[in-house]
Design a protein around this nucleic acid. Structure first.
Lengths: 257, 257
DNA sequence: CCGAGCGTTCCAAAAACCGGAACGCCCATG
DNA sequence: CATGGGCGTTCCGGTTTTTGGAACGCTCGG
């Protein structure tokens, strides 16, 4: 529905994902549009103030108007402040990078993040997006969704590294396991060498509203340490959920709501 | 051009501006669309993951996907970190709310902000938008734009309070004065009772890239204090610009580039 | 039980979009 | 200096998409 709108948003996303300003031809190519069509879309956004054009190179970049559009949202996340304290505890106790994410369709969006004390290399970005089915926080949240949502997400699976689980039955099993033990694991399935562990966060209505997780290079994530970290994560996840008003029935790690 | 896209973005902006989720009818009304039309636009955004629908009330709200789209932008503002130190100094020395904004078409966008030590009431929001022609930071930046941009902005002037200057010649004069003395003033022209003072920030290419300003209730902004604060602001603006690589020729407050 | 209001679907008329073609500009190359 | 390719932009007729009134079913309040 509303093809023009879909196309326009796709153009905006493409430019958002690009690290450098893009030319008309590049956008046309990337989005599969005719040059004239891409040009019209870009001009429209230009007039609306969502893109600006470099006078000399004629290339387009996003303006802060786009940022402005969504800037209120994150303030309104009442759980964010509460969760941040837990990210800090997690960060202090483990020394690893910790994140808070929410589910958006088949993706997770990283709301907040604390860097690892050790390392310099970093796998995620605040505001970044990743496929839910293959990252730890994503699985932690997916595991507690209804079957339809789960199947949708599984259907979207594609391989990103040699470790990515894409087999549908294996993914279903992975989510079952996640529910059973109460935490999710990702062994380098999204970014090669990056392992993650995560637990869901429940709201006062006992729905999953977010997930908190740890990520680190494979070298620092032995099976033993994963189990050890998972215990800590589950504790913190339970406590955070309780602070947000959830009753702890669901959190043991049984079935979906 | 691309009417459907313009309409779609308008819908998104409308929902972004609303404090509570909106129904199809409300959106249709607010954007001047037929119910069926609004419904189609909303469904499109729903499918794209930019809106979510409350299951019981059927109302639409924005998702963090919108936030995610623009989230990188603000990180890439290399001057932001530098400017923040100056906001802090300004905040410490004056005790008033200080902001950093950039120009976006006829509007300013507030990039960062420090609250006043005194007061509770606050006039701006990080990520917020205001018409450039009637706020201090906006005028500080407009004053150094080319004539075309200035005339465009002036042409958009509408009254928001009884103090708003809307007369075109008076506005041109105000901008001339701003250039001359090197700082801009707003005496409750946007939000009743909220006064502001601001100075432009220049980049290494000697273009205005931002503005820093102070705002406070009229009661705390006597003419004397305004002049006093302006001196401080001009100093900090010059220093910040110099730190960003600007040569100080332009900053004295003469003519546009 | 009825009627109003709302979300959603449908469809033919109408408008907007599409994309090939063409133009002019800039730059690299012969 | 001439030439040609690449690119941004504009134009316009054919056609697809969008449009919005109408209709349906649902819910809620009277």
């Amino acid at each position: 529905m509303d093809k023009t709108l879909v196309k326009g948003i796709h153009v905006l996303e493409t430019i958002a994902a690009s690290d450098s300003p893009m030319s008309v031809s590049e956008v046309a190519e990337a989005c599969g549009l005719a040059r004239s069509n891409a040009h019209r879309v870009l001009s429209t956004f230009l007039k609306l103030g969502y893109l600006s054009q470099d006078e000399s190179t004629r290339r387009y970049r996003m303006t802060l108007r786009v940022w402005s559009l969504g800037s209120r949202l994150v303030d309104r996340l009442d759980f964010k402040r509460e969760a941040l304290a837990f990210l800090e505890r997690l960060n202090n106790e483990t020394g690893e990078a910790t994140h808070l994410s929410v589910l958006n369709g088949h993706n997770v969006i990283y709301i907040d993040k604390l860097e690892a004390k050790h390392a310099v290399r970093t796998f995620t970005r605040i505001g970044g997006i990743a496929p839910a089915f293959c990252v730890a926080t994503g699985r932690a949240m997916l595991a507690y969704q209804n079957d339809e949502t789960i199947e949708d997400a599984i259907a979207q699976s594609t391989s990103f590294t040699e470790n990515t689980i894409t087999d549908h039955e294996a993914l279903r099993e992975e989510l079952r396991l996640t529910r059973l033990r109460g935490y999710a694991v990702n062994r380098g399935e999204w970014r090669g060498g990056a392992y993650g562990i995560a637990v869901p966060v429940f709201s006062a209505t006992n729905h999953v509203i977010a997930a908190i997780g740890i990520s680190a290079p494979a070298e620092r994530m032995s099976d033993d340490r994963i189990e050890h970290l998972a215990i800590l994560l589950k504790e913190l996840g339970r406590e955070l959920s309780r602070n947000l008003g959830a009753s702890n029935a669901l959190m043991a790690g049984s079935s979906a709501p």
